[in-house]
């Protein structure tokens, strides 16, 4: 009885995995097709990859995307960490809750609304659409994620740690850099990482606030895909898939390692 139901369950799970991964492998498979379509596989070729690597325009777009992601994640992390420390310092429950609700507005808002409202904002403020508008919006929507990643760590830290440091004569700056920041470091890294992935993944907000001259990878893929199938995109997605998987493996490795380390420390 138990056995039978579990084999059905395994079949169901297998089916879900096939559905989830089939489209991705479909893309990868046809990136090696010399036929030029996503339906008839004619022969093996690496032409699409060659073409991709020779495309300097695309290379620049990839660089733009990376620069935006790294810069916005960095600035968002600094602002978010300071904000989280600030939120904790408010002792009144109501103030804290208000700040947290404001913090979460950009997380729950649909991308279209963030994009549209930022477009209005930048136009009103006279900021030209392009690199800076994209960077500012990426910083803006990454800050709340960093706060949400850091705040639980901060809350879990016993205040007596900081009090002890102060009693022993540490200055505010010392307390921050020698006690608080090292303690919440895992949260900071998680926040930075999340901000990075949010920025790399974002399409809708960028689509609204990017002008004509500037483009990120997502926006570029969208405009290419609207023109129909071209196997360059398949080659590109294969490379991105491989990079993502490497990313996940590294992250998983670090997470499990730091997880056991943290557990050991706490014992």
């Amino acid at each position: 009885m138990e056995k039978k139901s579990s084999s059905f369950a395994n079949l169901f799970l297998l089916f879900i995995f096939v559905i989830l991964y089939a489209p991705i492998f479909y893309l990868i498979f046809y990136s090696f097709n010399s036929g030029g379509t996503m339906s008839h596989f004619e022969g093996f070729t690496l032409d699409w990859y060659r073409e991709l690597l020779q495309d300097t325009r695309l290379l620049i777009i990839v660089l733009n995307t990376l620069v935006i992601a790294l810069l916005s994640a960095l600035i968002a992390t600094v602002t978010g960490v300071l904000g989280a420390i600030g939120i904790r310092s408010y002792k009144r429950r109501q103030t804290r809750n208000t700040l947290l609700s404001l913090n979460n507005v950009l997380i729950v808002s649909p991308d279209v609304i963030i994009g549209a409202s930022f477009l209005i904002l930048f136009t009103m403020a006279g900021i030209q659409l392009g690199f800076y508008s994209v960077l500012l919006s990426h910083i803006a929507f990454s800050i709340p994620i960093v706060v949400l990643m850091v705040l639980p760590k901060l809350m879990e830290m016993s205040p007596s740690l900081e009090d002890a440091a102060r009693d022993l004569g540490a200055s505010n700056w010392n307390v921050l850099t020698k006690v608080t920041l090292p303690y919440i470091a895992p949260g900071i890294f998680a926040g930075f990482f999340m901000a990075l992935t949010y920025s790399l993944d974002d399409f809708a907000v960028t689509f609204f606030v990017t002008g004509n001259g500037f483009s990120t990878l997502s926006v570029e893929i969208y405009s290419l895909a609207r023109r129909g199938v071209s196997l360059n995109i398949n080659a590109l997605s294969t490379l991105m898939f491989v990079i993502t998987v490497i990313f996940v493996v590294v992250y998983y490795y670090l997470a499990t390692r730091s997880g056991t380390k943290g557990a050991n420390l706490r014992r």
């Binding site: 879900i16 991705i24 893309l27 339906s39 790399l200």
Partner: peptide, 30 residues
């Protein structure tokens, strides 16, 4: 581990997944 494998596809750019379906659902697609 299985959960991680479920999450991995959500890290692939959304537009690429949509693009895959343009191929799959196309007139001569899979």
């Amino acid at each position: 581990l299985w959960l991680l494998l479920i999450i991995v596809p959500s890290w692939i750019n959304l537009l690429l997944k949509a693009y895959a379906f343009i191929g799959i659902f196309g007139t001569h697609g899979a």
